[in-house]
Design a protein around this nucleic acid. Structure first.
Lengths: 115, 115
DNA sequence: GACACCTGCTAACTTTCCTTGGCATGTGCA
DNA sequence: TGCACATGCCAAGGAAAGTTAGCAGGTGTC
């Protein structure tokens, strides 16, 4: 009974690096409560829009949140973000499995044929 | 039925930041197979001792690995590291809960009394 | 037209992390 | 004594991430 598909090494690193940031954790937490648009979320979190943009971009790149462009009642373009229902389990065994598919910076990249 | 105690926000950030690194993931994976001492592990992973030291230090600081100083048969002091059987579950809900106990860089730090 | 709200981007600075190389210490063995 | 192996620490350069400030575009309302 698997709870979630085992992430590849690179995916795991990306997700971990993305979540390893207080601001991004707050963003995820806020979006978990309810979806929000950029400016509103920036005000809610007390950070600048430019900063939030960067963090949202990273979260989206990691597949943890998604953006949806909508039009408000008064015709304004609002970019609504919502959290993705992700589930990652972190254990030594999971990591050991993920490492098998870790890309090396410069050499070859045969999964499970390096050691 | 809880699988693991909910981590505090700061703990979570520390663990995530620690694991968000290919080298440290490899270290955890190697130690998950079997414990090892610094020099041997460095050779096994193909990295310098100094570099491994830094990564091991971070892993230990996050509570993911532990060090145990032992004496080999021929009287040499070997510092054996072994992985801790940690279990972290990453979901939007877990993150939302952890954010409640996130320390702010400069202001006060009353858990769950800010919003 | 001026204002308020929404969106996005880029350049530049600061800070942090990563990595290397060198140095110092201790043990056992030929 | 010299070599091989183990431990550790520190300084310094390079790479990456975080953050700010500013600019530019769009719409609706007074």
């Amino acid at each position: 009974m698997s709870t979630a598909p085992p992430p590849t090494g690179d995916d795991l690193v990306r997700v971990l690096a993305t979540l390893a940031n207080p601001h991004r954790l707050r963003v995820v937490a806020a979006l978990a409560r309810e979806r929000a648009y950029v400016s509103g979320l920036a005000r809610q979190l007390g950070i600048s829009r430019a900063l939030l943009q960067v963090h949202l971009r990273k979260l989206a790149a990691a597949g943890l949140v998604t953006a949806r462009l909508e039009l408000s009642e008064d015709g304004k373009a609002m970019n609504y973000y919502e959290v993705e229902p992700f589930v990652f389990t972190l254990t030594p065994a999971v990591i050991a499995a993920a490492v098998e598919t870790l890309t090396v910076p410069d050499s070859g990249e045969q999964p499970g044929a390096e050691r």
